[in-house]
């Protein structure tokens, strides 16, 4: 296909969103969005509630059918690149009283690779335990999932994505409802993923921490306001455009994205 070769020539983006419009019952939620996520970045999607962040992630994963436009991940439609994509849904989207334990949930990350009917075996178990150790949840492997705190649940989801051993990770609010310690642990992990050359996209709500945590950002409110390196596009003008002038408190951070960026590059 012509589009593929031309994209590959100019150092293929990890995710390429083209003219994407998504509507629920003919009510558009995302209007004609173009977005390139270069490979190997740690990117935040920010925007007010109802901006369409979750919808964008879902459109990338083919969970909602766009009214127009397309998404390519690693140069292919999601259908074909599925095995190389890991997904962390919003924590609230599942029933945590479901009768299963932590290890079992993490093993679900291998179901795609396992294929039909085959059950997880020793190998899956080991991979899952390894991933749990990475998120410091090793000792919780046998714990019933309803007995986890919010932060622990989030880490379990993260571990499940880790065992997917993907190249691109899409995460919906991985920091929602976690304490400062867990947040630091998670971001360290994400930065590790980035240093391994993986691409990580997170929906993020805390505007203060964007410059610390991420190197790339997309500002979204029904349409794309801006996207690019944090140092270039994460400024007051764009934030005002995104949040509609409700972000007076931001001026401190917005004034100093350059220094924040420097901090990110240090580690």
């Amino acid at each position: 296909m012509t589009t593929m070769t031309s994209a590959a020539l100019e150092s293929q983006p990890a995710i390429a969103v083209r003219d994407l419009t998504v509507a629920y019952n003919d009510r558009p939620v995302i209007w004609d969005l173009d977005l390139d996520v270069p490979a190997g970045v740690l990117m935040a999607i920010v925007g007010p509630n109802g901006a369409g962040k979750t919808t964008l992630i879902k459109a990338m994963l083919d969970l909602v059918r766009p009214a127009a436009g397309q998404v390519e991940i690693l140069g292919q439609p999601y259908r074909k690149s599925r095995d190389r994509v890991g997904y962390v849904p919003q924590r609230g989207s599942v029933d945590w009283d479901f009768p299963t334990n932590v290890l079992d949930v993490v093993q679900m990350g291998r179901y795609g690779a396992l294929g039909w009917i085959r059950r997880p075996g020793n190998r899956e178990r080991e991979l899952a335990l390894e991933a749990l150790d990475k998120v410091s949840m090793g000792e919780f492997a046998d714990r019933q999932i309803s007995q986890l705190s919010g932060g622990q649940q989030q880490r379990v989801f993260l571990a499940r994505a880790l065992v997917q051993n993907a190249d691109v990770y899409l995460m919906d609010e991985p920091f929602q409802g976690v304490d400062a310690t867990t947040e630091r642990a998670i971001i360290t992990l994400l930065k590790e993923l980035r240093s391994e050359g993986k691409t990580v996209v997170c929906v993020h709500h805390d505007l203060q921490t964007v410059p610390d945590y991420f190197d790339w950002v997309a500002l979204l409110n029904i349409r794309k306001i801006a996207s690019g390196p944090v140092s270039e596009v994460y400024n007051e003008t764009n934030l005002r455009l995104t949040y509609g002038g409700r972000v007076a408190f931001l001026s401190r951070d917005a004034a100093a994205p350059a220094t924040a960026q420097a901090a990110v590059e240090e580690d």
């Binding site: 994509v85 997904y87 849904p89 989207s93 479901f98 179901y111 009917i117 059950r119």
Partner: peptide, 22 residues
């Protein structure tokens, strides 16, 4: 019994099951 694993995932986490292409 045959689709035990698939049923479990679909019931527990639909969105994730979708993302795996089930």
């Amino acid at each position: 019994l045959l689709f035990w694993k698939e049923f479990k995932l679909v019931v527990f986490d639909r969105a994730f099951a979708f993302s795996l292409g089930m």
